[in-house]
Design a protein around this nucleic acid. Sequence first.
RNA 1: CGGGGAGUAGCGCAGUCUGGUAGCGCGUUUGGUUCGGGACCAAAAGGUCGCGGGUUCGAAUCCCACCUCCCCGACCA
Length: 570
Amino acid sequence: MRWTRSLITTLRDDPQEAEIASHKLMLRAGMLRKVGGGLYSFTPLGLRALRKVEKIVREEMDAAGALEILLPALQPIELWETSGRASQMGASMFRLKDRADRTMVLGPTHEEVVTDYMLHEINSYRQLPVIVYQIQTKFRDEIRPRFGLMRAKEFIMKDAYSFDTSLDAADASYKAMYDAYVRIFRRCGLEAHPVEADTGTIGGNHSHEFMVLAPSGEDGILHCAKCGYSANQERAERRTAGSRYTTKAGSPEEVATPGAHSVDEAAASMGVPSTQIVKSLVYLADGKPVLAIVEGNTEVNECKLRRFLGCSILVPADIETAEKAVGAPFGSIGPVGVKIPVYADIGLKGARDVCVGANKDGFHLRHVSIEDDIKAEWADIATVVEGDSCPHCGEPLSIERGIEVGHVFKLGTKYTEKFKATYLDDKGVPQTLVMGCYGIGVTRTVQAVVEQSHDDDGIIWPASVAPYHVDLLLLDPNSPEVVKAAEELESALEAQGIDVLLDDRAERPGVKFKDADLIGFPFRVVAGAKALAKGCFEVRARGDKESALMPVGDTAAWISARIKEKLAGA
RNA sequence: CGGGGAGUAGCGCAGUCUGGUAGCGCGUUUGGUUCGGGACCAAAAGGUCGCGGGUUCGAAUCCCACCUCCCCGACCA
């Protein structure tokens, strides 16, 4: 491909809209163009990288025995009513009406459609297990699209679904997908770490996310250097010795704390550390009020609380609802004597001398014992932070930021029960299918590669996802000898399956060098009259400081060997 | 949805306070000189100043409403 025919336009300045490196670089390198908030066009250059990631995903899915299918993005709402997710996905699902006034949905994911498909397709245990996958556009009406492809309203996802006869059998499918994911991300040149994760609105009982470590990542990941425990902050657990206020100091007594509503205000007003204050928060679990209590210096983790309660929607109660549920003014709510269920974080275990809201404006209670004075159920519901103890080995946990590029779920029978998707076992008895689902954000993966692999000059593509492997830079586009030698090299490389971009622009060398670094070709070959007079090209790998002179006749073989090494070794 | 910021040429920005019909750099086109890390000279194309009202002799600029984009947040009491 010739540069002058390729529609590649690079930008010298960072577009004002972009915040993080990968987003800036993809715009500057001319891979993406913005259409609107969370909506992007792929240019020919950008699409080449996207297609390469897709190709790797396809190869590994096929190798793992999954079958490629294609499901409609436009779906009838009825399927979502069957699963019960029509309300649960709520505002994040695009809805529209067709001409007959039927409500349709632009699929944010495809559990419903694929379960409906399998319900009709699978009759016998002899057909199982089966894994299907597709690479397709998903639509989500994100609260706030962000960072280019990282969180977009329309994006490309690989989604796979497994169907098995039993939970044990489903474990094998899960492992096959998990292992395929490890290979996919490695081949994309990504360092992606599997971590234990929350299942969110997808549901199920067990899941791992594949996280690319990057400071711009939207998720916190707790990691134990000693035993290897890794988990998303949404789900991470901790080991705790319980409260440090274990000595009973008397019976609960009211203390006037005028104007003190927050934990810090209450602590200051009563002259105690914030850890001795108990924070009380009212939530609505599927509409039912509950009270969650944690130590004053920790946060309630809504994902963990939701999972503990087994409810599908958990939201903080608004002021009015909270006051009505507890019968106390907002800002003084506490767990003593309330009529709604109370869930106490395990960090409060053994607490016999703590302070809580008195359910009376301007007052707190001190000398409260959780076990003696409150009817509460113990639960692990606090957000784990850096320095907390590993739940397995007790070592301090570290925290890093991560980009979620993949997520694998054990779903069990959550969807197949709702859809009555059954098969006949070897005794002719109907059984419910056991399901798993597995997603990779393909467009997000492309950007994650850039986020993880760049320098001040531009992108550093791994050979496996580079839009072109080689930038063949014509230093003297007007010299017939130089052009001829370059064209011969291009043909020789292309015959080896190497993607070459011939920079035939009438630009000064500096411009071409800068663009080569910005776009980030793994290799750059300079074809110029001076070197050619010595029978050589100049060859340089992206990131190397110096170029090497290489005899014209050896160049194609050397480069294609290097690239094939990288592709095989990745 | 709440808070903050911003919409002026393809990209980055000035001009807005103090109204007088639009400018700079990069990029693009043409010609010339250059030619190893984003050259120089000359000429040129390109903008209903986000949209709609209003005030005014006159609005990018003042007033009112709206739209869009970016950032922070998600009722942690």
